[in-house]
Simulated scan of single mutants.
Amino acid sequence: MKCLLHIGTEKTGSTSIQDFLVLNRAALSRKGVMVSKALGRGNNRALPACFQGRLDDLSRRLRIPSLEAQKAHFSPILERFLSEVEAARASHDLCLVSSEHLHSRLRSPEEVAALREFLAPHFTGIEVFGYFREQASLVKSNYSTWVEGGGGSASLARFCEEAMPGNPYYDYCALAEMWSAAFGHDSFRPRLYRRDALHGGDVRRDFAAEALKLDDLSDLTFVVTESNRSLGAAGVLIARGLNATLPQFWPGGGRNRLRDGLMRAAVLSGLARIGRLEFPEAAAIRARFEAPNLLFSQRFFGRPDNIFH
Protein backbone atom coordinates (compact mmCIF):
# COMPACT_ATOMS: atom_id res chain seq x y z
CA MET A 1 0.00 0.00 0.00
CA LYS A 2 1.20 3.50 -0.87
CA CYS A 3 0.58 6.66 1.14
CA LEU A 4 -0.47 10.06 -0.20
CA LEU A 5 0.08 13.08 2.03
CA HIS A 6 -2.13 16.01 1.06
CA ILE A 7 -0.34 18.90 2.78
CA GLY A 8 -2.69 21.68 1.66
CA THR A 9 -1.27 24.24 1.42
CA GLU A 10 -3.45 26.48 3.60
CA LYS A 11 -6.12 28.58 1.85
CA THR A 12 -6.25 26.29 -1.18
CA GLY A 13 -9.62 24.62 -0.70
CA SER A 14 -8.44 22.01 1.80
CA THR A 15 -11.69 22.10 3.79
CA SER A 16 -13.73 21.56 0.61
CA ILE A 17 -11.51 18.61 -0.31
CA GLN A 18 -11.77 17.12 3.17
CA ASP A 19 -15.57 17.48 3.26
CA PHE A 20 -15.64 15.74 -0.12
CA LEU A 21 -13.44 12.91 1.19
CA VAL A 22 -15.64 12.38 4.26
CA LEU A 23 -18.78 12.35 2.14
CA ASN A 24 -17.29 9.87 -0.34
CA ARG A 25 -15.27 7.68 2.04
CA ALA A 26 -17.21 4.50 1.18
CA ALA A 27 -17.13 5.13 -2.57
CA LEU A 28 -13.40 5.87 -2.47
CA SER A 29 -12.82 2.72 -0.42
CA ARG A 30 -14.44 0.70 -3.22
CA LYS A 31 -11.89 2.30 -5.55
CA GLY A 32 -9.02 1.19 -3.32
CA VAL A 33 -8.49 4.51 -1.54
CA MET A 34 -8.48 4.42 2.25
CA VAL A 35 -9.35 7.79 3.80
CA SER A 36 -8.02 7.86 7.35
CA LYS A 37 -10.57 8.15 10.15
CA ALA A 38 -8.21 7.52 13.05
CA LEU A 39 -6.28 10.75 12.50
CA GLY A 40 -9.37 12.96 12.68
CA ARG A 41 -12.53 13.62 10.70
CA GLY A 42 -11.74 15.56 7.54
CA ASN A 43 -8.61 17.36 8.62
CA ASN A 44 -6.20 14.65 9.84
CA ARG A 45 -4.57 17.12 12.21
CA ALA A 46 -3.36 14.52 14.69
CA LEU A 47 -0.50 13.58 12.36
CA PRO A 48 1.25 16.97 12.20
CA ALA A 49 0.40 17.62 15.86
CA CYS A 50 2.63 14.73 16.89
CA PHE A 51 5.65 15.98 14.93
CA GLN A 52 5.47 19.77 15.17
CA GLY A 53 8.09 21.48 17.29
CA ARG A 54 5.84 24.01 19.02
CA LEU A 55 2.51 24.35 20.77
CA ASP A 56 -0.37 26.05 18.97
CA ASP A 57 -4.08 26.88 19.22
CA LEU A 58 -4.99 23.19 19.32
CA SER A 59 -2.61 22.68 22.23
CA ARG A 60 -4.29 25.49 24.15
CA ARG A 61 -7.77 24.19 23.35
CA LEU A 62 -6.80 20.74 24.64
CA ARG A 63 -4.94 22.34 27.58
CA ILE A 64 -1.69 20.62 26.67
CA PRO A 65 1.17 22.29 28.58
CA SER A 66 4.27 21.00 26.77
CA LEU A 67 5.57 19.29 23.66
CA GLU A 68 6.16 16.11 25.66
CA ALA A 69 2.54 16.13 26.82
CA GLN A 70 1.41 16.79 23.26
CA LYS A 71 3.29 13.76 21.93
CA ALA A 72 1.87 11.63 24.74
CA HIS A 73 -1.65 12.82 23.91
CA PHE A 74 -1.42 12.02 20.20
CA SER A 75 0.73 8.87 20.30
CA PRO A 76 -2.26 6.54 20.91
CA ILE A 77 -3.97 8.12 17.90
CA LEU A 78 -0.95 7.28 15.75
CA GLU A 79 -1.13 3.71 17.00
CA ARG A 80 -4.79 3.52 15.98
CA PHE A 81 -3.80 4.91 12.60
CA LEU A 82 -1.24 2.15 12.08
CA SER A 83 -3.85 -0.45 13.04
CA GLU A 84 -6.22 1.17 10.54
CA VAL A 85 -3.56 0.88 7.84
CA GLU A 86 -2.92 -2.79 8.58
CA ALA A 87 -6.63 -3.59 8.48
CA ALA A 88 -7.01 -1.87 5.09
CA ARG A 89 -3.82 -3.14 3.47
CA ALA A 90 -5.32 -6.24 1.83
CA SER A 91 -8.14 -4.36 0.09
CA HIS A 92 -6.72 -0.90 -0.59
CA ASP A 93 -3.91 0.40 -2.79
CA LEU A 94 -3.64 3.87 -1.29
CA CYS A 95 -3.82 5.42 2.18
CA LEU A 96 -4.79 9.10 2.03
CA VAL A 97 -3.89 11.57 4.78
CA SER A 98 -5.09 15.16 4.39
CA SER A 99 -4.14 18.08 6.61
CA GLU A 100 -3.21 21.65 5.71
CA HIS A 101 -1.44 21.71 9.08
CA LEU A 102 1.27 19.56 7.53
CA HIS A 103 2.08 22.78 5.66
CA SER A 104 1.56 25.29 8.45
CA ARG A 105 2.89 23.41 11.47
CA LEU A 106 5.88 21.46 10.12
CA ARG A 107 8.39 24.22 9.45
CA SER A 108 11.78 22.52 9.78
CA PRO A 109 13.61 19.73 7.91
CA GLU A 110 13.92 17.82 11.20
CA GLU A 111 10.14 17.77 11.72
CA VAL A 112 9.48 16.57 8.17
CA ALA A 113 12.25 13.96 8.43
CA ALA A 114 10.73 12.65 11.67
CA LEU A 115 7.37 12.29 9.93
CA ARG A 116 8.99 10.29 7.14
CA GLU A 117 10.78 8.07 9.64
CA PHE A 118 7.43 7.25 11.24
CA LEU A 119 5.60 6.55 7.96
CA ALA A 120 8.21 4.89 5.75
CA PRO A 121 8.26 1.39 7.34
CA HIS A 122 4.53 0.98 6.77
CA PHE A 123 4.19 1.89 3.08
CA THR A 124 5.73 0.83 -0.22
CA GLY A 125 5.95 4.47 -1.26
CA ILE A 126 4.95 7.93 -0.06
CA GLU A 127 3.95 10.89 -2.22
CA VAL A 128 3.42 14.50 -1.14
CA PHE A 129 0.69 16.47 -2.90
CA GLY A 130 -0.13 20.14 -2.46
CA TYR A 131 -1.83 23.10 -4.09
CA PHE A 132 -0.06 26.44 -4.35
CA ARG A 133 -1.46 29.94 -4.80
CA GLU A 134 0.32 33.22 -5.42
CA GLN A 135 1.70 34.58 -2.14
CA ALA A 136 0.00 37.98 -2.04
CA SER A 137 -3.35 36.26 -2.47
CA LEU A 138 -2.41 33.79 0.26
CA VAL A 139 -1.39 36.56 2.67
CA LYS A 140 -4.64 38.48 2.24
CA SER A 141 -6.84 35.40 2.61
CA ASN A 142 -4.80 34.09 5.53
CA TYR A 143 -4.97 37.45 7.31
CA SER A 144 -8.76 37.49 7.05
CA THR A 145 -9.01 34.01 8.57
CA TRP A 146 -6.44 34.81 11.27
CA VAL A 147 -8.05 38.01 12.47
CA GLU A 148 -11.61 36.60 12.24
CA GLY A 149 -10.56 33.60 14.34
CA GLY A 150 -9.07 35.76 17.08
CA GLY A 151 -5.41 35.41 16.15
CA GLY A 152 -4.51 38.99 17.02
CA SER A 153 -5.06 42.68 16.38
CA ALA A 154 -2.09 43.41 14.10
CA SER A 155 -2.68 45.37 10.92
CA LEU A 156 -2.50 43.72 7.51
CA ALA A 157 0.74 45.62 6.84
CA ARG A 158 2.28 44.19 10.01
CA PHE A 159 0.97 40.71 9.21
CA CYS A 160 2.77 40.88 5.84
CA GLU A 161 6.15 41.05 7.52
CA GLU A 162 6.25 37.25 7.87
CA ALA A 163 5.84 36.76 4.12
CA MET A 164 9.53 36.66 3.31
CA PRO A 165 11.73 34.37 1.20
CA GLY A 166 13.17 31.63 3.39
CA ASN A 167 9.97 31.19 5.39
CA PRO A 168 8.66 27.83 4.10
CA TYR A 169 5.07 28.83 4.84
CA TYR A 170 5.26 31.36 1.99
CA ASP A 171 8.46 30.41 0.18
CA TYR A 172 7.28 27.46 -1.91
CA CYS A 173 10.73 26.66 -3.26
CA ALA A 174 12.05 26.35 0.31
CA LEU A 175 9.03 24.26 1.27
CA ALA A 176 9.38 21.98 -1.76
CA GLU A 177 13.10 21.50 -1.14
CA MET A 178 12.39 20.60 2.50
CA TRP A 179 9.75 17.98 1.66
CA SER A 180 11.73 16.65 -1.29
CA ALA A 181 14.81 16.19 0.87
CA ALA A 182 12.79 13.85 3.09
CA PHE A 183 10.59 12.04 0.57
CA GLY A 184 12.45 12.44 -2.75
CA HIS A 185 12.14 14.94 -5.58
CA ASP A 186 9.94 12.70 -7.71
CA SER A 187 7.59 12.11 -4.77
CA PHE A 188 6.72 15.80 -4.46
CA ARG A 189 3.68 16.62 -6.60
CA PRO A 190 2.73 20.33 -6.70
CA ARG A 191 -0.42 21.68 -8.34
CA LEU A 192 -1.34 25.26 -9.21
CA TYR A 193 -4.33 26.57 -7.25
CA ARG A 194 -6.10 28.79 -9.73
CA ARG A 195 -9.60 28.29 -11.06
CA ASP A 196 -8.56 28.13 -14.71
CA ALA A 197 -5.95 25.46 -13.86
CA LEU A 198 -8.37 23.15 -12.02
CA HIS A 199 -10.53 20.44 -13.59
CA GLY A 200 -13.89 22.10 -14.16
CA GLY A 201 -12.74 24.96 -11.96
CA ASP A 202 -13.42 22.71 -8.95
CA VAL A 203 -10.63 21.81 -6.54
CA ARG A 204 -12.48 18.64 -5.43
CA ARG A 205 -12.72 17.28 -8.97
CA ASP A 206 -9.15 18.30 -9.59
CA PHE A 207 -8.00 16.48 -6.46
CA ALA A 208 -9.87 13.32 -7.42
CA ALA A 209 -8.36 13.35 -10.91
CA GLU A 210 -4.84 14.60 -10.20
CA ALA A 211 -4.04 13.52 -6.63
CA LEU A 212 -6.00 10.25 -6.56
CA LYS A 213 -5.59 9.60 -10.31
CA LEU A 214 -9.22 8.52 -10.72
CA ASP A 215 -10.59 8.38 -14.26
CA ASP A 216 -14.24 7.74 -13.43
CA LEU A 217 -15.82 10.22 -11.03
CA SER A 218 -19.42 9.36 -11.90
CA ASP A 219 -20.15 7.55 -8.64
CA LEU A 220 -18.68 10.27 -6.44
CA THR A 221 -20.86 12.94 -4.83
CA PHE A 222 -20.06 16.63 -5.28
CA VAL A 223 -22.29 18.75 -3.08
CA VAL A 224 -22.57 22.43 -3.92
CA THR A 225 -21.07 24.35 -1.01
CA GLU A 226 -20.57 28.02 -0.25
CA SER A 227 -16.92 28.90 -0.09
CA ASN A 228 -15.55 30.79 2.90
CA ARG A 229 -15.67 34.51 2.18
CA SER A 230 -13.02 36.88 3.40
CA LEU A 231 -13.83 39.77 5.71
CA GLY A 232 -14.39 43.22 4.30
CA ALA A 233 -12.79 46.38 5.66
CA ALA A 234 -15.52 46.73 8.30
CA GLY A 235 -15.10 43.11 9.39
CA VAL A 236 -11.36 43.51 9.84
CA LEU A 237 -11.88 46.58 12.03
CA ILE A 238 -14.47 44.72 14.13
CA ALA A 239 -12.23 41.66 14.48
CA ARG A 240 -9.15 43.68 15.42
CA GLY A 241 -11.15 45.58 18.02
CA LEU A 242 -12.52 42.38 19.53
CA ASN A 243 -9.09 40.77 19.54
CA ALA A 244 -7.54 43.77 21.28
CA THR A 245 -10.11 43.66 24.10
CA LEU A 246 -11.18 40.01 24.39
CA PRO A 247 -8.63 37.16 24.48
CA GLN A 248 -8.94 34.23 22.09
CA PHE A 249 -8.58 31.90 25.09
CA TRP A 250 -9.37 32.36 28.76
CA PRO A 251 -6.42 31.95 31.21
CA GLY A 252 -7.46 28.36 31.93
CA GLY A 253 -7.18 27.48 28.24
CA GLY A 254 -10.86 27.43 27.29
CA ARG A 255 -12.00 29.17 24.12
CA ASN A 256 -13.54 32.63 24.62
CA ARG A 257 -17.09 31.98 23.41
CA LEU A 258 -18.14 35.57 24.05
CA ARG A 259 -15.56 36.88 21.61
CA ASP A 260 -16.42 34.19 19.05
CA GLY A 261 -20.17 34.89 19.40
CA LEU A 262 -19.76 38.61 18.79
CA MET A 263 -17.62 37.94 15.74
CA ARG A 264 -20.08 35.42 14.38
CA ALA A 265 -22.94 37.88 14.85
CA ALA A 266 -21.03 40.45 12.78
CA VAL A 267 -20.48 37.90 10.02
CA LEU A 268 -24.07 36.61 9.96
CA SER A 269 -25.49 40.13 9.91
CA GLY A 270 -23.45 40.97 6.83
CA LEU A 271 -21.72 43.83 8.61
CA ALA A 272 -18.36 42.05 8.51
CA ARG A 273 -18.49 41.83 4.70
CA ILE A 274 -18.89 45.56 4.10
CA GLY A 275 -16.10 47.45 2.38
CA ARG A 276 -13.10 46.42 0.36
CA LEU A 277 -9.95 45.53 2.27
CA GLU A 278 -7.17 47.58 0.71
CA PHE A 279 -3.88 45.78 0.19
CA PRO A 280 -1.19 48.14 -1.11
CA GLU A 281 1.55 45.72 0.01
CA ALA A 282 0.52 43.14 -2.61
CA ALA A 283 2.91 44.42 -5.29
CA ALA A 284 5.88 44.33 -2.91
CA ILE A 285 5.05 40.75 -1.88
CA ARG A 286 4.87 39.64 -5.51
CA ALA A 287 8.22 41.29 -6.21
CA ARG A 288 10.02 39.73 -3.25
CA PHE A 289 8.91 36.22 -4.29
CA GLU A 290 9.66 36.64 -7.98
CA ALA A 291 13.03 34.84 -7.82
CA PRO A 292 11.94 32.00 -5.46
CA ASN A 293 8.80 31.42 -7.53
CA LEU A 294 10.81 31.20 -10.72
CA LEU A 295 13.05 28.55 -9.13
CA PHE A 296 10.00 26.72 -7.82
CA SER A 297 8.45 26.72 -11.29
CA GLN A 298 11.64 25.47 -12.92
CA ARG A 299 12.56 22.78 -10.39
CA PHE A 300 9.14 21.39 -9.53
CA PHE A 301 6.83 22.23 -12.44
CA GLY A 302 9.41 21.93 -15.23
CA ARG A 303 8.40 25.36 -16.47
CA PRO A 304 10.82 28.06 -17.69
CA ASP A 305 8.49 30.85 -16.55
CA ASN A 306 6.87 31.85 -13.25
CA ILE A 307 3.68 29.78 -12.94
CA PHE A 308 1.96 32.54 -10.96
CA HIS A 309 2.12 35.05 -13.82
Results as ranks from 00 to 15, higher is better:
residue 240 R to G: 10
residue 286 R to P: 03
residue 247 P to V: 03
residue 285 I to N: 06
residue 244 A to C: 11
residue 60 R to E: 07
residue 222 F to W: 07
residue 309 H to W: 06
residue 10 E to A: 09
residue 210 E to H: 15
residue 15 T to P: 05
residue 164 M to K: 06
residue 18 Q to N: 03
residue 143 Y to H: 08
residue 109 P to E: 05
residue 259 R to G: 10
residue 30 R to Y: 03
residue 156 L to A: 01
residue 218 S to N: 11
residue 183 F to A: 12
residue 227 S to M: 12
residue 200 G to Y: 00
residue 255 R to Y: 06
residue 228 N to W: 00
residue 146 W to L: 14
residue 282 A to H: 01
residue 50 C to P: 04
residue 243 N to D: 04
residue 69 A to L: 03
residue 78 L to Q: 04
residue 101 H to N: 15
residue 68 E to F: 01
residue 61 R to Q: 11
residue 211 A to S: 09
residue 70 Q to F: 03
residue 277 L to Y: 01
residue 172 Y to M: 10
residue 75 S to M: 14
residue 211 A to H: 09
residue 173 C to E: 14
residue 32 G to P: 13
residue 191 R to M: 14
residue 37 K to W: 01
residue 278 E to G: 07
residue 248 Q to H: 06
residue 96 L to D: 06
residue 80 R to K: 03
residue 277 L to T: 09
residue 135 Q to V: 12
residue 300 F to N: 02
residue 28 L to T: 09
residue 119 L to H: 07
residue 112 V to T: 07
residue 18 Q to H: 07
residue 268 L to V: 12
residue 65 P to I: 03
residue 276 R to N: 10
residue 229 R to Y: 00
residue 95 C to G: 11
residue 275 G to T: 04
residue 200 G to L: 04
residue 300 F to V: 08
residue 91 S to I: 02
residue 109 P to S: 08
residue 48 P to E: 10
residue 23 L to R: 15
residue 267 V to E: 02
residue 278 E to V: 13
residue 106 L to G: 00
residue 86 E to D: 11
residue 203 V to L: 05
residue 34 M to N: 13
residue 3 C to H: 02
residue 185 H to N: 14
residue 227 S to N: 15
residue 51 F to Y: 04
residue 134 E to I: 12
residue 150 G to P: 07
residue 198 L to Y: 02
residue 241 G to P: 06
residue 108 S to H: 14
residue 173 C to P: 02
residue 186 D to T: 15
residue 207 F to L: 05
residue 9 T to A: 13
residue 100 E to G: 12
residue 71 K to S: 05
residue 108 S to F: 09
residue 70 Q to G: 07
residue 298 Q to E: 05
residue 136 A to H: 09
residue 64 I to P: 02
residue 201 G to R: 14
residue 230 S to Y: 00
